[in-house]
């Protein structure tokens, strides 16, 4: 489609689609993920990410404080929303993956889930947000690192350092010469690839989804050109633009689903890793 637009936009002028000489469609680049710093001091800076991250903390803290500070036996509407969130994480994530000991880790899982959910959803909040915080590599990397340190510490404390690492490095029930080949693979896949994929999965989903939305929006604005020299083509451009915005809204809905799903997947994998550390390998 963009090649077609380039052909149609021939020479001079600065209009959109069907205006000869337009600049052609400039798709959004990764620049949209590097908003200019708002305040700079020395090597540090406050950018839109920092502000949204702080807002996330305020929103999540505010939600849990407001809904659970004055709890009643017969819950109010908001208290029951909070309880549903709690039960969802406990019964769908913690207990099925970690088992009876899972309840201990529910606070961590809930914090992670709601933080990531809100950080993701900033991507579809108009005006204030329009930038998922998790599309900044630093955020998923730090979250994955926290989880990585956490499940290793849990494993060492629950099973003892020697037994814990023996189970990771030397899979039980394997003839010993195999360990020469298998142990390096285990080290890489469990201790290196696992945290990396944990972080990259969240980052890449948010990054790609946001870029897709931005492309649809930019295409919609570019193609909207009712003032084209040819009135008929001007009308056609409005129809084209309508399709682009239709796609934008459809993918926004899809994005909201993906944002929730990725928050869930991150937390589910966290629970799977903790579960593997709590229970010795079978």
């Amino acid at each position: 489609m963009s090649a077609n637009a380039h052909v149609l936009a021939a020479e001079d002028g600065d209009g959109g689609l069907f205006t000869p000489g337009g600049p052609g469609f400039a798709p959004p680049t990764t620049d949209i993920f590097f908003p200019p710093p708002i305040v700079e001091f020395g090597p540090f800076a406050i950018s839109k990410y920092t502000v949204l991250l702080a807002l996330t903390v305020v929103v999540v803290l505010g939600f849990w404080f407001a809904t659970t500070s004055k709890m009643k036996l017969v819950p109010s509407r908001w208290q029951s929303v909070a309880e549903m969130g709690y039960l969802f994480i406990r019964d769908q994530v913690a207990r099925p993956t970690i088992g009876k000991q899972g309840d201990r880790y529910v606070p961590l899982l809930i914090t992670l889930f709601f933080m990531i959910l809100v950080m993701n959803l900033w991507g579809v909040v108009p005006l204030v947000g329009q930038l998922p915080v998790t599309a900044n590599t630093a955020v998923p990397i730090v979250l994955a690192l926290i989880v990585y340190v956490f499940w290793n510490v849990v494993g060492i404390r629950k099973q003892g350092g020697w037994r814990y690492f023996r189970d990771i490095l030397f899979m039980p029930g394997v003839p010993w010469p195999f360990y020469i080949i298998l142990t390096p693979i285990e080290v890489i896949s469990t201790l290196i690839v696992r945290p990396v994929t944990h972080a990259v999965r969240l980052f890449a989903n948010m990054f790609a989804g946001h870029l897709l939305l931005a492309t649809f929006a930019a295409a919609g604005f570019y193609m909207f050109n009712p003032g084209a020299p040819d009135a008929l083509l001007g009308a056609v451009s409005v129809v084209f633009s309508g399709f682009a915005f239709l796609g934008f809204f459809a993918f926004t809905l899809l994005e909201i689903v993906i944002m929730s799903l990725q928050a869930f997947v991150f937390v589910l994998l966290t629970a799977v890793y903790i579960g593997g550390a709590v229970e010795p390998a079978h």
Partner: peptide, 24 residues
């Protein structure tokens, strides 16, 4: 009650399979 007295099913982290196949 749901889940509390249920033994955890062995969960396979699908990405772990990809990770292992790449790591080797």
């Amino acid at each position: 009650r749901q889940g509390s007295d249920r033994e955890p099913e062995p969960k396979v982290d699908a990405m772990a399979i990809v990770g292992t196949l790449l790591a080797g």
